[in-house]
Design a protein around this nucleic acid. Structure first.
Length: 267
DNA sequence: AATTACGACAACCGCCTCTCA
DNA sequence: TTGAGAGGCGGTTGTCGTAAT
């Protein structure tokens, strides 16, 4: 009885993602946006990962326009307000915060906002006998939540998130430009580029595209002509050519040059 | 300088929902 | 109508960096 696991935990790699894996996943998702479902992606991309893990990595970390910076005071207030309204519907809350993921919001809540929320909600242990107690601590009205204990550093970086978003989009475009400049001999799908949205999320609202920016159409995938599936050897330059790079090491280093050193993805 | 405590966040787990044949 | 498979989601854990002692 019980559900069968989606992948074999004994053989599938777990834990932190390497740059090479990130590069492969990024390029694979971008370049083969019509590539089908997450469960088959790892095998076809040559990633020894669970499909769910790939999806999570993409959605929470690699997807363009994500904001990895500090949460602003406005965002904190919005999260607190929404939590008071709807509870721990992190995906709903995250939808109200452009560039934030449900995982981000959830983590932020668990590490910071939860305490603030509990403090705000907790009734005073005893009726305050002195005026030294926070006047709003026992106020249940969300609109009168105590002003968050502002971290000056946080305030100083209120706009940092937006800047990161802008920069990450630039980097994304730069990365894709770099990849597309590479000779594409051995390209596995000659029409792939033209049929892709400019970014995975750009076409997310169009028909046939999932909210994750992953088109549901499974008609087109990698060439099956060479076999039942495509397993990419990281050391195989021919396989790397399929992604428009000389080798996966080149791909990874290019990716690293553009994004890694900017401290956006690896910090 | 070494150790401990804590915060931040990436990643995993398992259940639920949705879609499709 | 129904069952299987994939996606989505919330809870939880693991790891790493840093501040405090």
């Amino acid at each position: 009885m019980g559900r069968s696991p989606c992948c074999d935990r004994r053989t599938v790699k777990r834990g932190a993602w390497s740059r090479e894996e990130d590069a492969i996943l990024t390029v694979f998702v971008q370049r083969f946006a019509n590539a089908g479902n997450w469960m088959t992606l790892p095998h076809k991309a040559g990633l020894n990962r669970c499909g769910k893990s790939c999806r999570l990595r993409w959605l929470n970390y690699l997807r363009p326009a994500l904001r990895h910076g500090r949460f602003t005071d406005e965002e904190d207030s919005l999260i607190l307000s929404l939590y008071a309204d709807i509870g721990s519907k992190w995906s709903v809350i995250a939808a109200k915060l452009p560039g934030r993921t449900d995982n981000d919001v959830k983590n932020h809540w668990n590490t910071k906002l939860k305490k603030r929320h509990l403090l705000a909600m907790a009734p005073s242990p005893t009726p305050p006998t002195a005026a030294t107690d926070s006047p709003s601590a026992s106020d249940s009205d969300e609109s009168s939540l105590p002003p968050p204990p502002l971290d000056e550093a946080a305030v100083a970086t209120v706009d940092h998130g937006g800047e990161l978003t802008h920069r990450s989009e630039e980097l994304y475009a730069e990365l894709m430009g770099l990849i597309q400049q590479q000779p594409t001999n051995g390209d596995v799908r000659s029409s792939s580029s033209s049929s892709l949205p400019s970014t995975p999320t750009a076409g997310a609202s169009s028909a046939g595209v999932t909210s994750a920016g992953w088109p549901v159409d499974d008609k087109e995938f990698l060439p099956e002509s060479s076999g039942s599936s495509m397993v990419v050897d990281l050391d195989d330059p021919c396989a790397a050519h399929a992604f428009g790079a000389t080798t996966f090491q080149d791909l990874a280093s290019s990716y690293d040059e553009i994004i890694g050193t900017e401290g956006l993805l690896y910090y």
